[in-house]
């Protein structure tokens, strides 16, 4: 069942059309990847679905709720991880998780459960008691991924989730994302790392210059374009 329906989505920045009538669906529990180069319109699409930016045209429905009409309700079930995100430097890692859990938890015990999950995902041990200003880029990213997933959102929107992480941490985070999807969290992610998306995603959409060129499972796309990996698929599609 499609829980995210995007139809003819358009976004203009002045005279520039950043998203040009794209359409795709995401099924419940699925990991859906948007792949494309820098400036393809991936981040703009994620920002629109995350209720940050207003669309100029088209329709988006998330769990049946219409974007632009029921944004407050949509925000209660989604969690967005921006590509270039940061955390409040004056707070400790633990304080940051506590602050963010405060927006989603309905009662103290739920909040406690969220924080415990966040602590587990972040896996920063005693450093969670240190201020975020002392964290490395990788540590901050792990904290942010933990923040995005700890509330068990119905839809996790992850923009370049492993950006800034080393190989070991990237693999760890990919496994965590896969695990969450198995537990019912639907994931929409974007990346220009096509190999990562190939590993993670159930289905992908190839996007460039604001348009989606093709959508499908990585294996079917590779078969269709007679390619060894998604990078080769992409090059074939945008040729």
């Amino acid at each position: 069942m499609a829980i995210v329906e995007v139809k003819n989505l358009i976004k203009d920045y002045g005279a520039l059309r950043a998203v040009d009538g794209i359409s795709f669906d995401i099924n419940e529990g699925e990991i859906f990847g948007l792949i494309g180069p820098n400036g393809a319109g991936k981040t703009t699409t994620l920002r629109i679905i995350s209720t940050i930016l207003k669309k100029n045209g088209g329709e988006v429905a998330i769990f049946g709720m219409r974007l632009g009409h029921e944004d407050a309700r949509i925000r209660e079930i989604i969690s967005y991880l921006p590509e270039e995100a940061g955390a409040y430097k004056n707070l400790t890692g633990f304080g940051y998780l506590d602050f963010m859990a405060g927006f989603y938890a309905k009662n103290p015990s739920e909040k406690k459960a969220f924080i415990e999950r966040g602590v587990e995902i972040a896996d920063l041990g005693g450093r969670l008691k240190s201020k975020v200003s002392t964290y490395s880029k990788g540590m901050t990213r792990k904290l942010l991924v933990a923040r995005a997933l700890m509330i068990m959102p119905k839809l996790a929107i992850l923009d370049e989730p492993t950006s800034g992480l080393d190989v070991v941490n990237s693999i760890e985070i990919r496994e965590i994302i896969k695990g969450f999807a198995k537990n019912g969290v639907t994931v929409l992610l974007s990346s220009h790392n096509m190999l990562e998306v190939e590993f993670l995603s159930d289905r992908v959409a190839l996007i460039d210059k604001g348009k989606i060129f093709d959508t499908g499972t990585p294996s079917k796309l590779k078969e269709k374009y007679n390619a060894r990996n998604l990078e080769e698929v992409f090059m074939e599609v945008v040729k």
């Binding site: 407050a72 209660e76 989604i78 927006f103 989603y104």
Partner: peptide, 8 residues
């Protein structure tokens, strides 16, 4: 960006 997506 993150703050703008939280339910408040």
């Amino acid at each position: 960006e993150t703050l703008l997506t939280v339910p408040i």
